[in-house]
């Protein structure tokens, strides 16, 4: 069942994004920025965790989960070290994503040529 929910929820998040692009003529940059902030906001109330429990990758693959993970990491250290912990922990959970994006992006740029 998780597979079906992953498809439906992930698709629905993208569908909302497409409507925002088409109706409000947002740029892709505005869209992802607002989705990231939205993910963080939803995490404050613990809502995003419930969505991940329900839809798995359908909620963890869209960029909204980036905001959620940033806040999650910040809070886990924040609970231990106070306000300074927020700065310590903010990249704790997203490290894999950012590191792989930088590493693979750099290597691909070195090896390939833009095709247009």
């Amino acid at each position: 069942m998780i597979f079906l929910y992953a498809f439906l929820v992930g698709g629905a998040i993208c569908l909302i994004g497409q409507l925002l692009l088409d109706i409000f003529k947002w740029t892709p940059a505005h869209l992802v920025v607002i989705f990231v902030v939205l993910g963080a906001v939803l995490d404050v109330f613990g809502l995003y965790d419930r969505l991940i429990d329900f839809a798995g990758a359908g909620a963890s693959v869209p960029i909204t989960s980036f905001g959620h993970s940033l806040l999650h990491g910040a809070m886990s250290e924040g609970h231990q070290h106070g306000y300074l912990g927020i700065a310590i922990g903010i990249f704790k959970l997203t490290s894999a994503g950012i590191t792989s994006a930088i590493l693979f992006g750099f290597l691909v740029a070195l090896l390939f040529k833009p095709k247009g």
Binding site: A6, G10, G11, A12, D22, A57
Partner: peptide
Amino acid sequence: NSLKAFLVGGLICLFGQ
């Protein structure tokens, strides 16, 4: 446009699952 976004986005998430 929405259908295409739904389908492709959904499939990427499904693959992620």
